[in-house]
């Protein structure tokens, strides 16, 4: 894959895409973490027989942790991801000069 990149690098790569790729990976990572949390608490605590369940606010602990806490936690994490790590950028086509300026601003 690397040499493909080298061979086609006869143009100026859009300077915004580095950040875009990072953000896409972060979104994917958050999704996978969300899945892991949901799975670990849901099946980790929910797999014992229901007679042995513990309860919090009336809900079985597995459900409370996996769905209620998980839902709130990952909403908060999504907010943190967006406000701390996502960057504002123009979405319109850039001229070579604008691209240069943008790159200088970012670095």
């Amino acid at each position: 894959m690397e040499n493909v990149k080298e061979a086609t690098q006869t143009f100026i790569e859009d300077p915004r895409f580095k950040q875009c790729n990072k953000e896409a990976l972060m979104g994917m990572g958050l999704g996978i973490l969300n899945l892991v949390w949901w799975f670990a608490f849901g099946y980790g605590m929910g797999s014992k027989p229901p007679e042995e369940y513990t309860y919090i606010m009336g809900l079985p602990m597995w459900f409370f942790m996996s769905c209620v806490v998980g839902g709130l936690l990952f909403t908060i994490l999504a907010i943190i991801m967006v406000t701390k790590f996502f960057k504002n950028m123009p979405l319109e086509r850039m001229t070579a000069e604008e691209a240069k300026n943008y790159e200088m601003e970012v670095n």
């Binding site: 875009c20 979104g27 994917m28 958050l30 969300n34 839902g71 979405l91």
Partner: peptide
């Protein structure tokens, strides 16, 4: 639940 942030950040600004 993750569909909202997942779709928008994976397609993203790119």
């Amino acid at each position: 639940m993750p569909t909202g942030y997942f779709t928008l950040s994976v397609l993203g600004k790119k």
